[in-house]
Amino acid sequence: MNAQLANWDDLRVFLAVARAGSLSGAARSLGVNHSTVFRRIAGLEETMGVRLFERLPTGYVLTAAGEETLGIVERIEEDVTTLDRTVTGQDLRLSGTVRITAIDMLAFWLLPDHLARFRESYPGIEVEIVVGNEALDLSRRETDLALRIGNTPPETLVGRRVGRLHFAVYGAPEYCASHPNTDLSTHDWIGFDSAHAPLTREVEKLVPGIRPAIRSNSVACAVRLAKAGLGLAVLPCAIADLKPDLIRAAELPGVFGLDLWLLTHEDLRHTARIRAVLEFLTPALTESLQVVRRSSDLQTNKLHPSA
């Protein structure tokens, strides 16, 4: 095996294929096309003089040499990302790119107005938003900052609790008017998949044995489905209370809520551009949630008891 001429870019492609188990999955994670991944893997195998993958109908499976290579390359990856974080952490320039990951509802409704004002104050910092439910790995520099919902953030990350998202049951005015019964088990429900397990658990506690008429992995989609009159949904008050075509139909027992965190990796917390985003967004998001919470307290139950 001749690994001396293998470069890090080729090894990154190798890691992506090993983790995805397919060329298409690796291409998506790397943001390149299928043929590029194919060429890079073929070139790496030729350079190293060994076959790293078995090409099976079900996907790419590591050979014995590939398994051995994977362990070594993962250690190299850890060293490279540690070096990257260490160097980036000493960067004092208020310029460059800061990558933020957030789920769709936060990226669509909470971040835009604040980022517009941030750009006025820091025109040299380019913000890149990655929207998705997947928890990107900050230790591998897949993202610089993460806006995450949950009451127990990962211990490996540092950051700020910016507030608490409170949830309630919402529906379209037309739907609530045509379904006035306060027995929530009689209603159609919009549910969530496993990506939003805490919300799913709350709905099941509120209406035991419920089988939603429709499900989504996206809170933004659930908002749209509720607005279309497809049923009731548990939604964040910070978003749903601001929608004129949604009304709060019922409260959740115990005032259910989830903490909102703005997190980064410890090695990056002193990077000037990342610290600038962190320090700007923290009070801005906190104030947004407090304002909405104050207005939310004035909302009343819109479902009426059946005759």
Rank of each mutant, 00 (worst) to 15 (best):
E279C: 02
D193G: 11
E46K: 06
T97P: 03
A220Q: 07
P153T: 04
A213T: 14
E204A: 15
E134F: 04
D79S: 10
G71K: 01
N217I: 08
V37Y: 02
P253T: 09
L138I: 00
R269C: 04
N7K: 10
V130K: 15
D79A: 13
S288R: 09
A27P: 07
R75C: 03
A240G: 13
A102P: 03
T101I: 01
R161E: 09
K243H: 10
C176P: 04
S194I: 13
G257I: 01
R75M: 11
Y170K: 08
K302H: 12
V50R: 02
V292H: 07
G209W: 03
L184H: 07
S35N: 02
V17T: 02
V158R: 09
F38N: 14
P154Y: 02
L52I: 05
A272Y: 03
L44D: 00
A146N: 00
G132Y: 10
G191V: 06
R51Y: 08
G229Q: 12
L199D: 07
R215D: 14
T97Y: 04
V277F: 00
S216G: 10
D79N: 07
L44F: 06
T200V: 10
S295D: 07
V203E: 09
H179N: 14
G257W: 01
L252F: 11
E128V: 12
L263D: 05
D9F: 08
D259L: 04
P253D: 12
V131W: 02
E204H: 13
L268G: 05
H270N: 07
H265K: 06
D104R: 11
N33L: 00
L258E: 12
L157T: 02
D91E: 11
L278R: 08
V130R: 12
P283T: 05
P305N: 12
